[in-house]
């Protein structure tokens, strides 16, 4: 604020040289257009999803919706497969995020204590997998040899430990004021007291950032399901379902539409076909809604996260 005021005190003649209004307007316009172009694909999907199904099927929508219909959404809400995969995604996201972040805080605290038994070697042991991975095939064979192929264990267990999360948690906890910890320990607190009473309450910002990034990553993943649980269809997450439906294109096989169709649609074959072609837009919207709804509120944590990537020891 003070800086702004200072700038206002600068004589007007000099301020004009800061840039012409024309250039400023051009910059505003350019940035605005870039933002709109970036947003355009989402607008297009949204408009298609709520338009009259006939307009959607006729591919006549360029930007704004034409007509209004929620038939495609109704189809989706009535569909057991989509509901099931949605809940599966919620389950994976909550479970893995909770376990991974909790583990990161515990491990991070432990590694932040100076003089820990064998700390140097433990750090090296934890860091090596960040730089060298055995690769897809040996990992796949190993997990199969554990008998985890086509089970949820193959998805959940390997993700409990995130080296990156541990390092970020450790760095943060290391930077907490040490005096609090020492005072607590003089008063007879154990390591567990220190973690639950001091470290976790003080680490809320880093816990928020790590949780959001982990949750986003898990919500969006699909490849590990393709590799480790290819035929465990009932336990596939939303993204895997979307890939099957939208990209590998066996929409009806996936949706099993025949069972759950609105009687009005059975009478009107044309409308039925149109709603079917609209489904893909509605499905994309439904799967993005959790992210779009949460996103404005958590944006600042994501920005902090982007900058954490540049955190250096």
């Amino acid at each position: 604020m003070a800086k702004l005021l200072e700038r206002d005190l600068i004589p007007k003649q000099n301020r004009i040289k800061q840039g012409s209004t024309l250039v400023t307007a051009a910059i505003y316009l350019f940035v605005g257009i870039t933002a709109l172009i970036t947003l355009y694909p989402f607008i297009l999907i949204f408009s298609n999803s709520i338009s009259n199904p006939i307009e959607c099927a006729a591919n006549s929508i360029w930007l704004l919706p034409k007509g209004f219909s929620l038939k495609a959404y109704a189809q989706i809400l009535n569909n057991d497969t989509i509901g099931r995969t949605f809940l599966n995604s919620v389950f994976y996201t909550v479970t893995i995020t909770f376990l991974s972040v909790m583990n990161a805080v515990f491990a991070g605290y432990s590694l932040s204590v100076s003089g820990l038994f064998g700390r140097k070697y433990i750090v090296i042991f934890i860091m090596i997998p960040m730089f060298f991975s055995a690769g897809l095939i040996p990992t796949f064979i190993t997990i199969s040899r554990y008998g985890m192929f086509n089970t949820l264990w193959a998805i959940i267990l390997p993700q409990i430990v995130s080296v990156w999360n541990i390092i970020l948690a450790r760095t943060y906890i290391h930077g907490l004021p040490g005096a609090l910890k020492e005072a607590a320990i003089i008063d007879g607190a154990s390591d567990f007291d220190v973690i639950f009473r001091i470290v976790i309450p003080l680490s809320k910002p880093i816990i928020a950032v790590l949780s959001l990034y982990t949750a986003l990553g898990v919500w969006n993943q699909w490849f590990n399901f393709l590799v480790y649980t290819p035929t465990l269809d009932d336990w596939h997450p939303l993204q895997m379902f979307l890939a099957k439906m939208l990209i590998w294109g066996n929409m009806n096989a996936v949706l099993k539409l025949e069972g759950n169709v609105d009687p009005e649609l059975i009478k009107n074959k044309l409308l039925f076909a149109a709603v079917n072609s609209q489904l893909k837009y509605a499905v994309i919207m439904v799967s993005s809604i959790p992210i779009i709804m949460v996103y404005p509120f958590v944006q600042k944590y994501f920005i902090q996260g982007a900058l954490l990537g540049s955190l250096k020891e």
Partner: peptide
């Protein structure tokens, strides 16, 4: 003396062995 702190690191160490180091051994294939 550090047993509790090391216990906190145990899940990490075990998981890294199982899912990162054993596959490295598997590279023999």
């Amino acid at each position: 003396r550090d047993k509790w702190l090391l216990l906190l690191l145990l899940p990490t160490i075990v998981a890294l062995i199982l899912f990162n180091y054993v596959p490295m051994y598997g590279l023999a294939m």
